[in-house]
Simulated assay, not measured.
Amino acid sequence: MTSSRQKAANLRYRLPPPLFDARSRAAWLVLGVLALVVASFASLDLKLGSFLSGEALASMRKFLGEFVPPDTSPGFVAKVAQGAWETLAMSALGTVLAALAGVAMALPASRLPGAARGGVRLLLNALRSVPELVWASMLLISAGLGPFAGTLALAIHTSGVLGRLFAEAIENAPPGPAGALRIQGAGTLRVFLYATLPQVLPQLMSYTLYRWENNIRAAAVLGVVGAGGLGQLLMYHMGLFQMDKTATVLAAMLVLVAVVDGVSFSLRRWLTR
């Protein structure tokens, strides 16, 4: 009995193999990643010499000099502020719609058996596999130019992302409270509302706020295809080589992203306390 306990203790507290050892999975993984990086450099035509040449640096310095000073005329600043508000509204509404759709799809993706569950997960994969720009380009045909197409594009893509994250959170919820309610005769809906949801709600909110941070950046880019907001202003003035106005739009993007990141970080810290 004593020897078996000692063997069990030795197996339990056995040290991992050294890093540079044939049994070390971490070493093989690092070697594989390094081989992939080397193969990437070998296969891509990276003209680093031309990129770092004196002529290229001089051209870049001249180009960046055209951004200074930015256009701070009251009329244009008001126009940029309106575009920033449009971008913020697109990201917020798109994230809310995506969170609702994500919860609706996460429940069958985590609870349904067999093929039905696989079908819902396949739908989630399809929604998040298509980038927001592609969704916006397709939706422009039916929704027309403007923020409506951008909002729908954000909602569709983000619903696939949040649906997958929500499903995993629901699957990993501790089963104890749900089992206790089932023993008392509670139905599936009550078990979810009173046992599962309270446990995973902070995590769901954290995922939603994090995706809102990403969507504010995506919303600023969606305007490139005519989906409204700051991106549309950026594309328009860059196309006309009005770099002073372009600098103002870029500054507004930086400020908007920084504010949303700060607000989202504070809310996630508050939720996880």
Results as ranks from 00 to 15, higher is better:
Val120Glu: 02
Pro147Cys: 06
Ser159Glu: 03
Ser40Phe: 14
Gly150Phe: 04
Ser264Pro: 07
Ser50Leu: 14
Ser91Thr: 05
Leu133Val: 15
Leu165Glu: 00
Met90Phe: 03
Asp71Cys: 06
Arg111Lys: 09
Gly231Asp: 07
Leu222Ser: 02
Tyr236Asn: 13
Arg14Ile: 12
Met105Val: 08
Gly228Asp: 03
Ala101Asp: 05
Phe63Asn: 04
Leu97Tyr: 12
Ala106Trp: 05
Gly185Ala: 09
Leu145Arg: 02
Pro70Gly: 11
Leu64Asn: 09
Asp261Pro: 05
Pro147Met: 14
Tyr13His: 13
Val260Glu: 06
Asn215Met: 04
Gly262Leu: 13
Gly179Ala: 15
Ser53Trp: 07
Pro202Asn: 10
Gly176Ser: 14
Asp21Lys: 12
Phe51Cys: 01
Tyr210Ala: 09
Ala115Trp: 13
Ser73Cys: 08
Gln242Cys: 05
Leu48Asn: 05
Ser50Gly: 12
Ala258Asp: 03
Pro16Arg: 08
Leu271Gly: 06
Asp45Ile: 04
Ser206Leu: 13
Ala153Pro: 05
Arg269Glu: 10
Ser129Gln: 07
Glu168Lys: 03
Leu201Cys: 09
Leu11Gln: 10
Ile156Ser: 01
Glu55Leu: 08
Gln6Ile: 14
Phe63His: 11
Ala98Trp: 08
Thr246Met: 14
Arg111Thr: 10
Leu222Asp: 02
Arg23Thr: 11
Gly118Ala: 14
Leu250Tyr: 07
Ala178Leu: 04
Arg211Cys: 14
Val37Pro: 00
Leu209Ser: 12
Leu88Glu: 04
Lys7Ile: 15
Gly231Ser: 01
Ser40Arg: 07
Pro131Ser: 07
Pro17Ser: 12
Val120Ala: 07
Gln184Leu: 15
Gln203Val: 12
Leu48Ala: 14
Met60Ser: 04
Ser4Leu: 15
Ala104Asn: 07
His237Arg: 00
Glu86Gly: 02
Tyr194Ala: 11
Ala143Gln: 14
Thr158Gly: 02
Val80Phe: 00
Thr188Glu: 15
Phe241Lys: 02
Lys79Asn: 09
Gly102Leu: 01
Ala8Tyr: 01
Ala26Arg: 06
Leu100Ser: 03
Ala115Phe: 12
Gly54Ala: 14
Ala58His: 08
Tyr210Thr: 11
Arg164Lys: 15
Ser73Met: 11
Leu36Ala: 15
Gly176His: 10
Ala220Leu: 07
Ser206Trp: 06
Ser129Val: 13
Trp270Pro: 06
Thr158Trp: 00
Asp45Thr: 02
Ser4Trp: 10
Tyr194Ile: 06
Tyr207Arg: 01
Ala104Thr: 11
Val249Ser: 04
Ala58Leu: 14
Gly32Gln: 06
Phe41Pro: 01
Ser137Met: 15
Pro202Glu: 12
Arg269Tyr: 09
Thr188Leu: 13
Val38Ser: 05
Arg111Ile: 12
Gly49Ser: 11
Asn172Ile: 08
Gly176Val: 13
Met238Gly: 12
Pro177Val: 13
Ala247Phe: 08
Leu36Asn: 03
Pro202His: 11
Ala9Pro: 07
Leu29Cys: 15
Tyr210Ile: 13
Ala167Thr: 10
Leu133Thr: 03
